[in-house]
Design a protein around this nucleic acid. Structure first.
Length: 437
DNA sequence: TCTGGGGTCCTAGGACCC
DNA sequence: TCTGGGGTCCTAGGACCC
């Protein structure tokens, strides 16, 4: 038996934990560049604000309904997530942290009433972190996800499901008839692994509810759709096909991509941005003690500006040997950029992705043909990178940068907009909340 | 005027090899 | 006139997740 625990409207709940005045208010958290809504309180959902709604389209609710919009404060959310996850761990013996606000818990070997146990853990999470959670329990991870959806929906829309399923829903504790009843009232698109495309195809074929899907023959599903959907159907039927991952597997790629604060046309500006993105990706790479073998760089115009000439291009640049060196990675990214850049476009976004990652310890050695410069490079660079990271950790990001990143802040038209960020309450001394008597 | 970021997995098709 | 079969590797693109 598995549980899935997830924080309700997680980013909004993190903000509310430190600002009680936000309770009961419509609140959204905005993406980078304050572009669109990526988290919504129930009150905001009730206004009809959808996930990903562009800020400029919902902005009028500020005046009319007191909508509060905040810039994303990922440092806060990451720290709150750590706190929540450590409490969730008490639910069972093995835990998989699946995303910033969700974790699976393996409940095998746990005796007693699972629903009651989940209720107590939920209460503890709320008390110790201030984050309200929904908990779903089922025989497989897909069923636990489904149960979690029912728990959240019953909480948010009373009347949609039996009242006792609000917050905590244990599908494993239901009779076959009860299970069938909730599956019949749940749209097939709510199943984990069924997205908009497959959902539409399923409905087209007359498969409208979860109950319809669970009754399909897995082999036919594989033939008509894919092995992925076949696994989903089997999981819904109670056959586990998706393993728990206690340890996060090492990353296969590391990305740093950003939309620009305003459109960029000059190669010079793109070079600055790509330099910064490549350096930031390299820092992440060294953080997991990895090397990269190939660097992908891409640029693209805004698909939303249909009046603009569109251009989207990417290329990957192989490195002479796998490395974690900021300079080598940045040089490769800049070579790639030069190859794909076309003058005359309004570029809206760029990114650097490090591919072919491998543990640094597995790095292949190079024959020394007596080139003193090469030999010195190999030994001196890791120390240079260490020094770079140390200085930037101690004195703040951006204290030491590569020259091609550009020095004049006011020229950086591509920098991100973030106008409504709350304090980093839990990770910066200067931002710590102060109680006044 | 203004529309996020970071991932994984699967599949089809092309290039190439013997 | 008639033009195979089996395999690998790589890439791009689609689909999904949060």
């Amino acid at each position: 038996m598995y549980a899935l625990v997830d924080g309700n409207n997680f980013y909004v709940s993190c903000e509310r934990a430190f600002r009680a005045s936000l309770n009961g208010q419509p609140v959204v958290v905005l993406s980078n560049n304050d572009g669109c809504a990526i988290a919504r309180s129930n009150e905001a959902k009730a206004l009809g604000i959808t996930m990903g709604a562009p800020w400029f389209e919902i902005r009028h609710f500020e005046e009319s309904h007191g909508l509060v919009a905040l810039s994303a404060n990922f440092e806060l959310y990451g720290d709150m997530s750590d706190r929540m996850m450590s409490v969730v761990a008490g639910l069972g013996h093995r835990q998989e942290v699946y995303s910033i606000d969700e974790s699976f818990v393996d409940l095998s070997g746990i005796r007693g009433d699972l629903t009651e146990r989940a209720r107590r853990v939920r209460q503890r999470i709320l008390m110790w972190t201030g984050i309200p959670c929904g908990i779903g329990i089922g025989q497989t991870k897909t069923l636990a996800k489904l149960a979690n959806f029912i728990a959240k929906t019953a909480e948010r829309k009373p009347g949609s499901y039996p009242e006792h399923l609000a917050q905590i829903c244990n599908l494993g504790g239901m009779s076959a008839q009860q299970q069938a009843a909730v599956m019949e009232t749940t749209d097939v698109g709510e199943v984990w692994g069924v997205g908009p495309r497959i959902g539409a195809q399923l409905r087209e074929a007359g498969v409208k509810t979860v109950q319809d899907l669970v009754q399909l023959d897995p082999a036919s599903v594989r033939r008509r759709w894919s092995v992925v959907l076949e696994r989903t159907v089997r999981e819904l039927q109670g056959v586990p096909c998706i393993e728990m991952e206690d340890e996060p597997p090492p990353k296969q790629e590391i990305a740093y991509t950003r939309s620009f604060g305003s459109p960029v046309t000059a190669l010079r500006d793109l070079q600055e941005a790509v330099t910064e993105f490549a350096s930031r990706a390299a820092v992440k790479l060294r953080g997991q003690a990895g090397h990269t073998g190939r660097v992908l760089v891409f640029i693209r115009t805004s698909p939303f500006r249909t009046q603009d000439k569109q251009h989207s291009a990417s290329t990957t640049v192989p490195l002479r040997r796998p490395t974690d060196d900021s300079l080598a990675i940045t040089q490769a990214a800049l070579v790639g950029l030069r190859a794909i850049y076309q003058a005359g476009h309004r570029y809206a976004k760029a990114g650097v992705i490090l591919l072919e990652l491998a543990p640094a310890a597995e790095g292949q050695q190079e024959l020394d043909f007596g080139d003193p410069q090469a030999a010195r490079g190999v030994t001196a660079r890791p120390r240079l990178m260490q020094a770079l990271d140390l200085v930037n950790n101690r004195y703040g990001r951006g204290t030491l940068i590569l020259g091609s990143a550009g020095l004049a802040d006011e020229r950086r038209t591509w920098s991100m907009k973030q106008e409504r960020r709350t304090p980093r309450y839990t990770t910066r001394w200067e931002d710590m909340p102060v109680l006044r008597a």
